[in-house]
């Protein structure tokens, strides 16, 4: 079981938390591995989550809420590799420790817009074929095309999800009593 933070430490931390960058908030080095980020978030939650500090006086609990909000923000940014990259650029270029999530996401979106329909020519080509297959509910062919698309772009989540859905639809079609859906075009939301 984790040890408790002292109220005086909470107050001190609350005072400087806005000046800390997201790595500092989570007690990480800027070159930390992705796996360390989650662990740091869980560790921070154990000692700094408001639920873990309910025994404190109200003004200390307010400090705690404030810190917890920054911890969530830091984790939200750093857990996503693309957001983390965009944040690193911002942090180094502007020397500013915080960046609104919304602005960060817009920056990330601006750089990754094409991934929905594929980043490689082959990926796009097989994705298009698969989309046709899916609209015709030709699951077997869709699976083949999606598998190929995934080989070219193993990181593409849209492709991976569509593939698992097509497999599922095929399985249901074969299973007695199962009904494939009429509306099975891949959704890209």
């Amino acid at each position: 079981m984790s040890s408790r933070i002292l109220p005086i430490e909470l107050t001190a931390l609350a005072r400087i938390v806005d000046e800390l960058d997201y790595y500092q908030v989570l007690g990480l080095r800027p070159e930390a591995e992705a796996s360390e980020i989650k662990r740091a978030y869980h560790d921070a939650a154990r000692s700094l989550h408001p639920d873990a500090n309910r025994h404190l006086k109200e003004h200390h609990r307010i400090d705690c809420e404030r810190i917890a909000k920054r911890i969530s923000e830091a984790y939200c940014v750093l857990r996503n590799p693309r957001q983390r990259k965009a944040y690193d650029v911002h942090r180094v270029e502007h020397g500013s420790p915080r960046l609104p999530l919304n602005e960060l996401r817009n920056r990330v979106r601006a750089t990754q817009a094409p991934t929905r329909s594929g980043q490689t020519q082959e990926g796009r080509q097989f994705w298009e074929r698969a989309t046709d297959d899916l609209s015709r509910q030709d699951w077997a062919s869709a699976i083949r095309n999606l598998q190929t698309a995934v080989t070219f772009e193993p990181e593409n989540e849209v492709f991976r999800v569509a593939l698992s859905r097509a497999r599922h639809a095929l399985h249901d079609e074969k299973a007695p009593g199962g009904q494939p859906e009429a509306d099975s075009a891949p959704h890209t939301s």
Binding site: P50, E65, A68, K69, S72, E73, Y75, C76, L101, N102
Partner: peptide
């Protein structure tokens, strides 16, 4: 946005 950890302030 959805899926943002709470508590949060933006």
């Amino acid at each position: 946005e959805r899926s943002t950890p709470v508590p949060i302030e933006q």
